[in-house]
Amino acid sequence: MSENEKKRALTYVEKLKEKALQQKNYGGEVKKEDAGMDARDCPNCGAGRAFRHGLTACAYCGFVFMEIKLTDGIHIKKGNNS
């Protein structure tokens, strides 16, 4: 095989590698984020959301956080409906 022919395969691999490392992936880079904690107060009356009153509505003023009926999921269960 001549040097020129050898170069063909090498050039392709080199260009491919360069492009693979440079190109933007669809959806962009995966941002590495640390674990975090958040809480949502009732936007209507400012009260915190207590476990025993469920997740879907505010126990104090009745404000609806989520207009859905929770079913038995992984961590969230039927019992978490307000």
Partner: peptide
Amino acid sequence: TYVSCSFCHTQNTFMPSTEA
């Protein structure tokens, strides 16, 4: 995931890290 505070029972939301 919702986690509740053992003192005031507020529902907090825990967000695991990207790697987790």
